[in-house]
């Protein structure tokens, strides 16, 4: 770097345009969020005719969101949290177990297994929704807690999606952990379970965070199978299913409570993302960069 040039010029040529691009992209990235905030505080419940600073603002939307007994928002939040946390944990642990084996154990059909789990997830679950409904229904005939309207079967269904892209990412990460470490441990007499728990898991924490986060947000987003399994009964819905009810149908869109609820749901996830950003960047690709 040549220090003879003035700082100003350096700023003009190297940084200014970066800031301009940054601000433009930031505007694009934040665009719906800004309008979501604006509509959330607009008491008229509009979105299409929304002004950036609403003419009539207040907390009416939040009040109506929390006072609606037909559409109990707090219950939806709880449902979403329980389901997404449990299912994301299940997905991460099942995926980690499988990935560990795929990374460390040389067994026949390993390659095929890897490809298969990726391909199988590509079968559209849309049509299977009815079949899942029937399966859960007949499970419920015998075991009430595994039936329709219960969260456990839904969590297990999401657990079934654990073997997929996430397993790939996990496996690539495990591949980067030098196998000399576990070879050494094995010579010391450590069992495969011990190696996994004491060596791999601590080293792979960042990737677990990433996978958990991606699974968590993915499950938070799911509404088709969720609505089919849990039903559209007020207290059994999740945020993704429930909030849509406010703007259901083309006739009576009530944007106010919808955006207020969406804003409340988004904020904690957003904060989580900001704090775990570092892991996201390193975790997602570190796997493939061992060379």
């Amino acid at each position: 770097m040549k220090f003879s040039r003035s700082k100003v010029k350096y700023w003009m040529t190297k940084l200014l345009w970066r800031h301009i691009v940054g601000i433009l992209v930031a505007a694009f990235a934040l665009f719906p969020l800004v309008w979501m905030i604006s509509a959330a505080f607009d008491v008229t419940g509009q979105l299409s005719t929304q002004k950036l600073i609403p003419t009539f603002s207040g907390f009416d939307n939040f009040q109506s969101l929390f006072s609606n007994t037909e559409k109990p928002y707090t219950t939806w939040v709880r449902n979403s949290l329980v389901i997404a946390t449990a299912a994301a944990l299940l997905q991460t642990s099942i995926g980690a177990l499988a990935a560990y084996s795929l990374s460390r154990h040389k067994f026949r059909g390993r390659r095929v297994t890897l490809t298969t789990i990726l391909i199988v997830q590509m079968f559209p679950q849309l049509l299977a929704a009815t079949t899942l409904f029937l399966i859960i229904n007949s499970l419920g005939q015998t075991f009430d807690f595994l039936g329709l309207g219960h969260q456990l079967p839904l969590i297990l269904i999401f657990g079934g999606a654990a073997l997929g892209v996430n397993t790939w990412i996990l496996k690539s990460f495990f591949d980067t952990i030098p196998s000399e470490i576990d070879e050494a441990a094995k010579i010391d007499g450590a069992s495969h379970a011990l190696i996994f728990m004491k060596i791999i898991v601590p080293l792979a924490t960042p990737i677990f965070v990433v996978i958990f986060l991606l699974s968590f947000i993915g499950i938070l987003n799911e509404y088709l199978i969720t609505s089919v399994i849990l039903g559209l009964d007020g207290p059994s819905m999740t945020i993704a299913v429930g909030l849509q009810q406010f703007i259901y149908g083309s006739y009576a869109k009530n944007w106010g409570p919808f955006t207020a609820g969406a804003l409340l749901a988004t904020t904690p996830v957003l904060i989580l993302f900001i704090f775990l950003q570092k892991y996201l960047i390193s975790g997602l690709v570190s796997g493939s960069t061992k060379g």
Binding site: V25, A26, A29, L30, P32, L33, W35, M36, A39, L47, I217, L220, N221, Y223, I239, A240, L243, Q244, I247, F258, T259, A262, A265, T266, V269, L270, L272, F273, I274, Q277, L280
Partner: peptide
């Protein structure tokens, strides 16, 4: 941080917005 906000907003909600 700003660029990755779309990832953090549940897309069911953002698409409807």
């Amino acid at each position: 941080t700003i660029f990755i906000t779309p990832l953090a907003i549940p897309s069911v909600l953002s698409i409807l917005v």
